[in-house]
C-alpha cells in the first residue's frame, strides 16, 4: 500500500508531473549562480571564497519553490480523507510524501551544483564539500518544507507564508552545512546530517498532525 502511494507521489512530484514545480527550482538555482558573478564582479578569488555559501543560499531558496502544491492540492481534493478511510494514517502518507519530495528535488539539485560550481569557479575540494553538505542537508530542508507546507496548506495565501516560515527553520542546516566550507572539519557535515535526520524523524508526525487539524478546521 505504501509502495503504491510512493509511486503516485513520485509520479506527481518529479519534473513533468502535475504536482511538482518541474525544473523551475533548478533553473532558479542555476540563475542565482549565474547572476552572482555579475553582481559582485569577476574577482576570481572572491568568487571562489564566497561561491560555496551562495550555492547554499540558492539551494535553500530553490527548496521553497515546490512547496506550494506539495500538500495543498491533495488536501483540497480529499486524498488524505480517502487514504485515512483505507486505514492509512496521515503519518505514513506524509512519510511517503517526504521521501518523494526529496527524491524529486535533491538529486537534480546535486547535479546542478556541478555547473553552478563551475560558474563560480570553485575548486574541486570546495565543490566536494558543498556536494557532501547538500547531500547531508537536503533531507532536512525537505522535512522542514513538508512540515511547513502541511501546516499552511489550508490557509489562504499559504504558499507565501510557507516560504517565510521555512527560512528561519532552515538556519541550523545552513549554519553547519555552509560552515563546513570555512573549516576543513568533517564534524560540521556530520552535524548537518544529524540535524537532517532529526528533522526527517519529526516531519511525518508534525505534518500528519497538521493534516488532521486542517480537517477539523
Amino acid at each position: 500500500m505504501i509502495a503504491t502511494l510512493l509511486r503516485r507521489d513520485l509520479g506527481r512530484l518529479l519534473p513533468g508531473g502535475p504536482g511538482g514545480a518541474g525544473v523551475l527550482p533548478l533553473l532558479f538555482f542555476l540563475a542565482v549562480a549565474m547572476l552572482y558573478p555579475f553582481a559582485v564582479g569577476p574577482d576570481a578569488q572572491l568568487l571562489a571564497r564566497t561561491g560555496g555559501g551562495v550555492i547554499w543560499v540558492a539551494a535553500l531558496l530553490a527548496a521553497i519553490l515546490p512547496l506550494e502544491k506539495l500538500v495543498a492540492d491533495d488536501l483540497e481534493a480529499g486524498v488524505f480523507d480517502q487514504l485515512y478511510l483505507r486505514g492509512m494514517s496521515e503519518e505514513w502518507a506524509m512519510a511517503s510524501r517526504l521521501l518523494a519530495h526529496w527524491l524529486a528535488f535533491a538529486p537534480l539539485l546535486l547535479l546542478a551544483t556541478l555547473p553552478a560550481a563551475a560558474l563560480l569557479g570553485l575548486s574541486g575540494e570546495t565543490t566536494r564539500t558543498v556536494l557532501l553538505g547538500l547531500l547531508a542537508g537536503t533531507p532536512g530542508l525537505a522535512a522542514v518544507g513538508l512540515s511547513v507546507a502541511a501546516l499552511t496548506a489550508s490557509l489562504r495565501g499559504g504558499a507565501a507564508l510557507a516560504g517565510l516560515m521555512v527560512i528561519p527553520l532552515a538556519v541550523p542546516i545552513l549554519i553547519f552545512g555552509a560552515g563546513a566550507l570555512a573549516r576543513p572539519d568533517p564534524g560540521a557535515l556530520l552535524l548537518t546530517g544529524a540535524i537532517s535526520l532529526g528533522l526527517c524523524a519529526v516531519a511525518p508526525f508534525a505534518a500528519g498532525a497538521a493534516i488532521r487539524a486542517a480537517r477539523e478546521g
Binding site: 503504491t4 502511494l5 483540497e76 480529499g78 480523507d81 483505507r86
Partner: peptide, 28 residues
C-alpha cells in the same frame, strides 16, 4: 470498513480517468 463519496473527488485532475482510478484500484 467505511466508504465515503462526497464533493471531494480525490482523483488527480490531470490524469486520464482510467489512470486516476487505477491508483485507488491498486490501493484497494
Amino acid at each position: 470498513k467505511i466508504g465515503l463519496t462526497d464533493e471531494r473527488l480525490a482523483l488527480d485532475e490531470n490524469l486520464p480517468l482510467g489512470k486516476a482510478l487505477a491508483f485507488w484500484e491498486r490501493l484497494d
